[in-house]
Design a protein around this nucleic acid. Structure first.
Lengths: 256, 256
DNA sequence: CGGCTGCCTTGATCCGGATCAATTGCGCCA
DNA sequence: TGGCGCAATTGATCCGGATCAAGGCAGCCG
């Protein structure tokens, strides 16, 4: 439906000017992508390169609110975010939305569809977004021949298993919000963006839904954190002013 | 530590008499194991069999409270539950426990350790429990040569990604408990046990912790469900009397 | 320009489940 | 057999966050 791949050429992208977009330099993007080790380890000097090239397809742009995939779509590929932001969500039969996660440039969506063979959730663009699309059958076939690719897939899947922890536990609104902000910051930092100052691509409602809070509660907590000079926030522009204090608040939810 | 593999022989097990234990008939057990398709598809008539045999090691028994692995242990293998029940849990630095999941015969633990290369959680026996231990390096190597094994690993990992949903969402205590009981029943049924009448190997406290409720709340909900004739429960012996009604209560959390 | 529509913020009230507390029941061991 | 300890149940109270309600603010379009 809203699925509009570009003509399928890995050429220069049409003006990706989101603040978190890559600058059009593919090598630089690939350095920050979750697949980098798979793509690069496969070796640009090896014969496998040709296959990797042909199994990757650049798709986009998707505009705000457009679906990258929908619940029930047959699973054929996974997607690495090149630029923009995505939320994944389930909608239950009463029509209530359930946000499962947010995905930043360099991160990968669709892994939870391998087993059911159909996407179990929607993926919706929160920004104008571009992707690398990896055909999964081709990827598995490649993985059989290139152990580095296989290992990379295992690791990505396993890594995602550890990501449920922000939701787990009965934690206070303060803890959740602090941990959420720090997690986002870390993930931006890992991908080479500023981890202290960034744009929240998602609405307060989406954050609240993801954290299992009411939107009003998120708003109140953010206001309080601002009053306490832990953060500066104006609309969706955020700056982390006192990471140490935030970490203290959210520590029960954070790694180490 | 408490890690005591049996002499490493796939012979008959020493009296596994838990109601959910396999009866010592290995073929029958393997038919219900999550690995069955991997083990069986590998083919008892193919040369790979030899490798599969040598990468599987039978370990156990583990007694109530003993650890199969501990947080921080280096990751070398995954474990399929042969009989008994296991909980996985994290303990934060304040010493609070967080139950991540319960694993029944035929299910697999340890997949979330692939990426970090160390176990990110403890696995604790709730019953006397026996396992098949699969060396992961050997398993990956085999997966490279046998596509069915690789695919099976991908599917198991992906499947586990979908399992966070019982916790997700802000759902009422009734919804959570109903969904939990039905989920357990389904999982027993899939493995060939009774899905309507079974033993809860875990304490009320563990259930509560897993569902992010207080133990008192779980107790109250179970008492109410009993009063409403939805279940019969005495201690840890449970019977589902009105599955349809339970399904209605828990539907927001359940598949389809 | 003016009205409309989302999104966000802030205030007031309410309720589900946590917490505190007391009791019972059961298995275990001396 | 009695006593100890742990798990479970049940009751009473309390509180964090949901819900309801009322603006504020920015972008959009006629």
């Amino acid at each position: 439906m809203q699925f509009k791949p570009t003509p399928g050429r890995p050429g220069r992208l049409p003006e990706p000017r989101s603040p978190i977009a890559d600058d059009g330099d593919e090598t630089r993007f690939c350095g920050t992508c979750a697949f980098s080790s798979a793509c690069i380890a496969a070796g640009y000097d090896k014969p496998e390169l040709a296959e990797l090239q042909c199994l990757v397809e650049h798709v986009g742009p998707f505009r705000v609110g457009e679906h990258i995939f929908r619940t029930g779509d047959p699973f054929r590929a996974i997607f690495a975010v090149r630029s923009g932001t995505v939320k994944t969500r389930m909608v239950d039969k009463e029509g209530r939305e359930q946000v499962l996660g947010f995905y930043l440039p360099g991160e990968v969506i669709g892994l939870n569809a391998i087993y059911p063979e159909h996407f179990p959730c929607d993926a919706v663009a929160l920004d104008t977004a571009y992707f690398c699309r990896f055909s999964f059958p081709a990827m598995s076939a490649l993985a059989s021949r290139v152990p580095a690719v296989q290992q990379h897939l295992f690791r990505m899947l396993s890594k995602e298993l550890g990501t449920a922890s922000l939701l787990a536990g009965d934690h206070s609104a303060d803890e959740r919000v602090a941990a959420f902000l720090l997690d986002l910051g870390n993930r931006y930092a890992v991908r080479g963006f500023s981890g202290a100052q960034f744009h929240l691509s998602m609405s307060r409602g989406d954050i609240a839904n993801y954290l299992r809070l009411a939107a009003e509660t998120v708003s109140r907590v953010l206001s309080r954190f601002r009053a306490q000079k832990l953060i500066a926030i104006e609309g969706r522009e955020l700056e982390l002013l006192n990471v140490a204090a935030l970490r203290k608040i959210g520590e029960a939810l954070l790694p180490d």
